[in-house]
Design a protein around this nucleic acid. Sequence first.
DNA 1: CGGCAATACC
DNA 2: CGTAT
DNA 3: GCCG
Length: 577
Amino acid sequence: MSPRKRSRSSSISSSDSQPRKRQRSSSDGSEPDKRLKVYIVQAKLSADEVASLYALVDHHSVNESLDFELTPSPRDADVIVTAVHMRKRLERHIDWALAKEKPIVTPDWLFNSVSAGELLPCGKFAALSELHDETVHNCPDGDDDSDTAASSPPTDSLLHLRSPSQEPAASADLDWKSRYACCRASPLVCVNQHLVSRLAIIRRSRELEDDKISALSYDHAIGMIKSYPYELTEDRLNEVNSLPHIGPKMISRIEEYLDNGDIEEAETIANSQRYQSLEAFTDLYGVGATTARKLYAAGCRTFEDVERYYGVSYEDEAEEEADLDDGLKTEETDDLHLASQHNDRASQHNDRKPPRPLRFAKPKIPSITPRVALDLRDDLDQRIPREEVQEIFAVIVRELNAVRPGCVATIVGGYRRGKSLSGDVDIVIGHPNLSPTGKQVKGLSSRLVERLYERGLVTHLMYLSGFHAPDVTRAAHWDALEKALTVFVLPGGVRRRVDLIFAAPEAYWTAVVGWTGSKTFERDLRRWAAEQKELKFDSTGLTRRSNGELLVPTSEEDVFRLLGLGWVPPTLRNADA
DNA sequence: CGGCAATACC
DNA sequence: CGTAT
DNA sequence: GCCG
């Protein structure tokens, strides 16, 4: 069911006067030619912005259904991108009569479309309000994606803080009663979101207290509620009670919630010093539940305590950040590694010794140490607005193409699921088509990271997957995935966690699905594959359990198809709280 | 009652 | 073993 | 904490 544009324009195109609407210039005969021609008006755009836009368009990107190409002439453009907002100004570049026949949008339309993986409606991005209507009318949007399962109902989650009454996940074969999150539609915010948030506290507490299994049960229950399409009330209790993963304990909590509007244990936990401290400690990269408990047991309650615990080599706090410290330190931060260990501080003076006759005189990118994690905390605990995610993406795409032209990239993670704020930025890089020439993506990881570091865009490397020879089990497949977990920073910006995932051509689509999440959705995808289909699924690929045959999807929809699942749009994969 | 996602480093 | 994805 |  490859998504092709289903021009839902039928009703709109009433004003026939307009020439071909979404008819991509049928100029070059052959097939429908899905490449969308983009003309960029450079006026009023900085060199960098132009570069970003060109990188985005030039190397098109994302799925098969989203393919751009630059056109030198506005006349045969399908869409015109400009930062100009006034008629007079635009007329210097484009004939007014022509302008009225084209969608004239702001760069944001491009960024958003690329990020969304689909052509978005132009309305909100009309560059000239004066041409808003024409722009909307001529907009190339409306095509593909999301249709498969999410056609009938508005489906566009995201803004579904809506009323109770409404259709269940009428989407195709999605079933909110399924015991697998990957068979259900889970919006970002559900109708029973408050209850979910309460259960999430208990879940988190279980996790922090090392009761993983109980936490898992809450994950499942929360997932069920996230996709339950009705507002929970007394009269729905029976129905809810019969749902998978909702057992005696869960029902009693739900009943308590319906009676009192809250769950006592959740409140108690949330107000406890222990919970708050443990929760805070785990904000530190490298500090998990176990270490957090140790810190707490050692008497720590606040970050100040933790700093002290790890030895505040800090001269004082007067210096503040503004750390240009990492300008280009060609040194190697010696270890005293990740928090995992308990009391390992002391060992201060690590003299750096030339480790090995490493001929690579490359500057070494700082890695994380408890000290660094502490320093990064103020930045990393800030969430990232969508606009910035797009900016970061654009910059990375630009650099990526400087390193290896022809690559494509797509933002995955929470951003792709529609979150307005993200904890980090996840980007899958690769070649979407299993083209025979889908060559060298390998080693790309280190080269891109090097470049980003040289340019001061990457300040730390939490982890860089090596070029190991992974399996002997099923040779012929060099690392399907390479990863670079970094700390990235735009000039003058806040440092952000950015994960770069480099996928081999055969692994591209499973990587996209695997990194879009949510966590529970992913777990259930694996469970479903194993329990129902005798398949093994993970972000590096899909294989047949019996013969180990590697199944290579040709699109994201194909991944679901191969798994025998109905299509679930990214924005409906929010199975977690 | 066993199982609960799956891997890669540290 | 713990942490991260 | 719930399922098969």
